[in-house]
Simulated assay, not measured.
Amino acid sequence: MELMIERVRVRTEELESFLAAHHHEMAPTAPPESRHALALDGLLAPSVRLFTAQLGRDLVGTGALKELEPGHEELKSMRTDPGHRGQGFGRRLLSFLLEDARRRNVLTLSLETGSADFFEPARALYRAHGFRECGPFGGYAEDPHSVFMTLKL
């Protein structure tokens, strides 16, 4: 079965459930003020490009690109369903998002992820794609629960 990645512009129950699980999964990793995942309404805002990865009828991943300023976007809501982790879906989704940004002439892609051990596989994925740690960007502030990374495209 082929992984299909598509842009999402409307709310669905499946997507709401998937993102609720994302927020629930992150809850033990940091206090609320240090968790920066967008709710579905934020992901459907005009300044955000939300994508889902589907394997057949199963939603297996999400990822989004949020415009911060012209030429600079933020990677948001990268998640692979726990039952599908370790199969390369996150890597394929991230590659798709990087290509989408390049096609649109985005110059810099930045992200915020957690500093807890839970997020080490994500940080390793980002490093493997060329992201390097940086300081806070956009409206973020230094936070011991956050790791900031950036990539020049």
Rank of each mutant, 00 (worst) to 15 (best):
G86K: 10
R92C: 03
R132F: 06
E2A: 05
S115K: 14
F18C: 09
K66S: 15
R7E: 05
A30T: 01
R132D: 02
S77P: 06
E112Q: 13
R102V: 13
L153C: 13
A116F: 08
A20V: 06
E14W: 09
F18H: 03
A101N: 01
E2H: 07
S34V: 09
D143I: 04
R49T: 08
L153E: 06
L153M: 12
F137N: 02
R104C: 09
G130T: 01
E73D: 12
E2I: 04
N105A: 07
M4K: 13
A37T: 04
T52N: 12
V10P: 00
A122K: 00
L125R: 03
G42C: 06
P144G: 03
P136G: 11
E67F: 02
R7M: 15
E13Q: 03
H145E: 12
M78R: 02
A124E: 15
L151C: 07
K76V: 04
L68F: 04
S110D: 05
P31C: 07
R103E: 14
R104Y: 12
E142Y: 07
G139T: 12
M4R: 09
L93H: 06
V60H: 05
H23V: 14
L44I: 04
G88T: 01
G83S: 09
H23G: 02
A20E: 10
F51I: 05
R91G: 13
H129N: 07
V48E: 05
F18D: 03
R85D: 01
S110I: 02
H24C: 08
Q54K: 09
L94F: 07
L50R: 03
L19K: 00
T12V: 14
D143P: 00
E133F: 04
L38I: 00
S146D: 06
L94S: 02
E67L: 11
T150S: 14
K66A: 08
E13C: 11
T113M: 04
S95L: 11
S47F: 08
L153V: 08
A37N: 09
P32E: 10
F131H: 04
M78T: 06
P28A: 10
A116W: 00
H72M: 13
E120M: 10
H24Y: 06
R79C: 00
A39L: 11
G56W: 01
L68A: 12
Q54D: 13
F119P: 03
D81M: 11
A141E: 14
C134P: 02
A64R: 01
H22D: 05
A37D: 05
E6F: 03
L109A: 00
D100K: 03
H36L: 07
A53Q: 02
R123E: 01
E13L: 13
A122D: 08
F119T: 01
P121V: 12
P121Q: 15
G61H: 05
M78V: 14
